[in-house]
């Protein structure tokens, strides 16, 4: 589903990864941990096809991102649910329209789909805020809205970059529960986080694997987690 093979990446002359490899199995729950600046966001961007590896290859759904055209990359992103820490939205649209945006782009914006969006908004606890503009939402609400937008197309893999980075512990737990629910529905979850307590909590719900980035390498995290 997601194959990372001997990938190296650097910014200017500064290496972030050196020949890292990872195979993500379908339906698995992964945490990617590491200190700030270790390359977690870069790794997520590489998996999402926003960055292309200099050396090595990344295959998503069996196709190498390096060989994809912009059109194919966009098609691939429609099968991925991506949540960034910043949770950017189109500020001139309502939250409901922002969430339905991926469907609208795919030409699936129908009355039935609108009803599904409202169900999804109920699921993330934002039903009452459907007509509100993104800038009127709190950090936690924005994160949940971003998650709802990421899953609206029923993606096979959800890539979340520090999804609990800007929210309190209570909201982190709630977001985690939503991600665990998605995993139980068969979705592959890949979360980057520096919050080890979140990882510990997740392990009490699901069988989560933890990958640690340090010294330009990926490694299986220890049993202390």
């Amino acid at each position: 589903m997601l194959e990372i093979s001997k990938v190296s990446y650097s910014y200017g002359g500064n290496s972030v990864f050196s020949e890292v490899s990872l195979s993500v199995a379908p339906g698995a729950f992964y945490f990617l941990t590491g200190p700030s600046g270790s390359g977690k966001t870069t790794f997520i961007n590489l998996c999402a096809g926003s960055l292309i590896p200099e050396i090595g290859s990344i295959s998503v759904f069996g196709e190498e991102t390096k060989n994809m055209t912009n059109y194919e990359l966009a098609k691939m992103r429609r099968r991925l649910g991506i949540v960034h820490q910043e949770c950017e939205f189109l500020d001139h649209l309502s939250i409901e329209d922002n969430i339905i945006l991926p469907l609208s782009l795919a030409g699936l914006d129908s009355i039935k789909e609108r009803a599904n969006v409202l169900e999804l908004m109920k699921w993330v606890g934002l039903y009452s805020k459907s007509k509100v503009k993104p800038q009127e939402l709190s950090g936690g609400e924005r994160q949940r809205a971003a998650l709802a937008r990421a899953v609206i197309m029923s993606p096979d893999i959800i890539l979340a970059d520090e999804p609990t980075g800007n929210v309190d512990w209570e909201m982190s737990q709630r977001l985690l529960q939503l991600l665990v629910e998605l995993n139980k529905m068969g979705k592959t979850i890949f979360i980057s986080t520096h919050d080890l307590s979140l990882v510990r909590l997740a392990k009490s719900y699901v069988k989560a694997r933890t990958i640690r980035i340090s010294d330009l390498q990926l490694s299986q995290a220890g049993a202390d987690l």
Binding site: R78, L80, L101, L105
Partner: peptide
């Protein structure tokens, strides 16, 4: 530029 980033994120084609 934020609009561009969001549209790319949600899988909008460049032509669109």
């Amino acid at each position: 530029v934020k609009v561009l980033r969001v549209l790319r994120l949600v899988g909008a084609f460049d032509a669109f």
